[in-house]
Amino acid sequence: MGHLNHADKSLKQRVARLKGQVLALERALDGGQADCLDVLTQAAAVRGAAQGLMVQLMAHHLRAHVAAPEDAGQRDSGAEEMTAVLARYLK
């Protein structure tokens, strides 16, 4: 996905948000004082941040490798790649 090297800042912002959520979860677990519900809520926030990132990455892939290419072979290849990613993601 070479096109991601030039992607908008929102991808990096999503990664930074995810990193912050994971660090907050780690701090909650390390402290030993966190309420169980707070830890569960933080874990749900991590999952949401990861899912948001994944959706954005998949959208970039679909636009660049499935919708845009003039070459039908490249579109087919991009669609097959996306199918494989979805199969792993939805397990």
Rank of each mutant, 00 (worst) to 15 (best):
R27M: 12
K19A: 14
A50V: 01
K19F: 08
V15E: 12
R47M: 04
V15R: 09
A28R: 13
K91T: 13
V66L: 00
H61V: 01
A67P: 00
G32R: 01
L18I: 07
L37T: 15
L11M: 05
A49Q: 07
G2S: 06
T41Y: 05
D76P: 00
Q42N: 10
E26G: 00
V15M: 13
A87W: 07
R27W: 13
S77E: 12
S77G: 08
Q74W: 13
G78W: 01
A49E: 11
G2I: 01
L4K: 03
Q74M: 10
L90K: 09
A16S: 05
G48A: 13
V85W: 00
Q42A: 07
L11D: 00
G20V: 02
G20C: 03
A28L: 13
K19I: 11
E80W: 10
R88C: 12
E80L: 12
H3S: 15
Q13M: 10
R14S: 05
V85D: 03
S10V: 02
T41P: 00
A16I: 00
Q42M: 12
K91S: 10
A87Y: 05
L18D: 11
A79K: 04
A79R: 10
V85T: 05
K19H: 11
G32V: 10
R88I: 08
V66T: 07
L86S: 06
V66E: 06
A79G: 05
E26S: 04
K9A: 14
L23S: 14
M82K: 07
A50T: 02
L11V: 04
Q51K: 14
L29K: 08
G73Y: 03
M82L: 15
G48D: 11
V85G: 00
A44T: 09
M54D: 14
A49L: 05
L18Y: 04
D8L: 03
Q13S: 15
V39L: 02
R27D: 15
D30I: 04
D71E: 13
M54R: 14
H3Q: 13
A28C: 00
A7N: 06
E70D: 09
Q42K: 08
L57W: 07
R27L: 14
L53K: 01
V85E: 00
L18H: 07
L18V: 11
G2K: 00
D71R: 11
L29A: 03
M58S: 11
L4T: 11
V55C: 02
G31D: 08
L62Y: 14
V22W: 04
L4Q: 08
M1H: 13
E81W: 07
L62F: 14
A50C: 01
G73W: 03
